[in-house]
Amino acid sequence: MNGGMNVLPQNKYGEILEQLSRIPFNTLFARSVLELKANGLVWADNQDNPKTVFIANSYGMSLLFGDTERQGFNTSLRHYMLNKDGERSKYEYLQVYPDKWNSKLQALLKGKIINHDTLANQYPQRELEAMLEKHRKSHVFQWQRVNFKYAGTNKTINIDPQYKIKLIDSNIWERIEGSVIPKYFWKSEENFLLDGIGYALMNGNDIVSIAFSSCKHENYLEIGVETAEKYRGRGFARQVCQELLTYCQKNNYIPVWTCRKENTGSYKLAKSLGFIESLILPYYELVH
């Protein structure tokens, strides 16, 4: 099929992997979809010879890349980004490549993109939050996505004897709650336990904080972190992340960290662990 955003059959995913490998920033979440490690969907302008591709990971991250001038695809893309059919009810954040897509989206969405930094310079925090909520169902927000590079060294962190770090197993998996947790990044518990890795900081039977591989490909391991609400702000995430970094060092994995720059908790945690900024990209929150 030609003309719009056509669902690409899974037997075509392998053809997209080579194109994906040429993108010069972190796309592991998209690769996980193509390699069937994570749930998601792939659309293309043409099922037989795709020139423009959109990969949506079910966690809520997506990637658009390829030819910017496929008119039928772009019409469907505008419809999708503005949630014209009302099917999207949760966050979805989009990255694009090449850079030409950023100006293309400005033209395509015709005033429907609001730059968060511009608003943040005009309004105090409370008014800013109200402004965001007011426009969230009608406009796309542009944020900043930070790619980090690990420049730290392995550290030993002393943990209060009250707390223990345990490998995430089937029993712990079933009890993990939150928004950044393994079940949202992996196709199944079995896939995670076979191919992933993660640690949980425990207070008795309480899961205090977890650090886990949200994506794991070749010698790259992307880190996901979640801390139970009642334990936040006490440095527990740093302790369990250090355990995962030690695992990476011992097993020759390159740790990967990316986050929205405006997510100050994740941003500061990355810096405290020895990650440094390597690239900042536009990051689009789609209408929902």
Rank of each mutant, 00 (worst) to 15 (best):
residue 29 F to S: 05
residue 231 Y to S: 13
residue 278 S to M: 13
residue 15 E to V: 15
residue 129 E to S: 10
residue 145 R to A: 09
residue 264 T to N: 01
residue 131 M to V: 15
residue 66 G to C: 05
residue 219 N to K: 12
residue 216 K to L: 09
residue 147 N to K: 11
residue 10 Q to W: 08
residue 64 L to R: 00
residue 13 Y to Q: 02
residue 78 R to N: 07
residue 160 D to F: 01
residue 169 D to K: 10
residue 72 G to Y: 04
residue 144 Q to P: 04
residue 53 V to Y: 06
residue 247 Y to E: 10
residue 153 T to K: 15
residue 104 K to N: 06
residue 200 A to R: 04
residue 276 I to R: 15
residue 12 K to V: 05
residue 176 I to W: 02
residue 211 A to C: 11
residue 252 N to W: 01
residue 136 R to F: 07
residue 132 L to W: 06
residue 267 Y to H: 04
residue 113 I to R: 08
residue 153 T to G: 08
residue 246 T to A: 11
residue 106 Q to A: 10
residue 4 G to M: 08
residue 72 G to Q: 08
residue 21 S to N: 07
residue 207 I to M: 08
residue 157 I to R: 08
residue 62 S to D: 06
residue 154 N to G: 12
residue 66 G to A: 02
residue 123 Y to W: 13
residue 270 A to H: 11
residue 227 T to I: 12
residue 18 E to P: 00
residue 257 W to A: 11
residue 31 R to M: 09
residue 169 D to E: 07
residue 19 Q to E: 14
residue 18 E to G: 04
residue 238 R to G: 13
residue 220 Y to K: 15
residue 75 T to R: 14
residue 263 N to Y: 11
residue 190 E to P: 01
residue 266 S to D: 09
residue 58 S to W: 00
residue 209 S to F: 11
residue 68 T to E: 14
residue 158 N to Y: 02
residue 110 K to A: 14
residue 258 T to A: 12
residue 21 S to P: 01
residue 224 G to I: 03
residue 162 Q to E: 12
residue 6 N to P: 01
residue 187 K to M: 01
residue 109 L to N: 10
residue 224 G to C: 04
residue 60 G to A: 00
residue 129 E to N: 13
residue 38 A to R: 05
residue 67 D to Q: 12
residue 99 D to A: 14
residue 129 E to H: 10
residue 142 Q to E: 15
residue 255 P to N: 08
residue 141 F to D: 11
residue 123 Y to G: 03
residue 187 K to G: 06
residue 59 Y to P: 02
residue 117 D to H: 13
residue 1 M to Q: 01
residue 150 Y to K: 02
residue 176 I to M: 05
residue 223 I to T: 06
residue 274 G to E: 07
residue 236 F to Y: 15
residue 11 N to W: 04
residue 105 L to Y: 12
residue 285 E to V: 04
residue 171 N to E: 14
residue 6 N to Q: 08
residue 232 R to S: 05
residue 287 V to K: 01
residue 141 F to N: 11
residue 17 L to R: 14
residue 183 K to N: 09
residue 142 Q to F: 05
residue 115 N to L: 03
residue 79 H to A: 04
residue 249 Q to R: 09
residue 243 E to Y: 05
residue 189 E to I: 12
residue 218 E to A: 10
residue 159 I to A: 06
residue 115 N to E: 15
residue 66 G to I: 02
residue 100 K to T: 15
residue 94 L to H: 07
residue 172 I to R: 07
residue 188 S to L: 03
residue 253 Y to S: 03
residue 252 N to R: 15
residue 132 L to E: 12
residue 255 P to T: 00
residue 82 L to W: 03
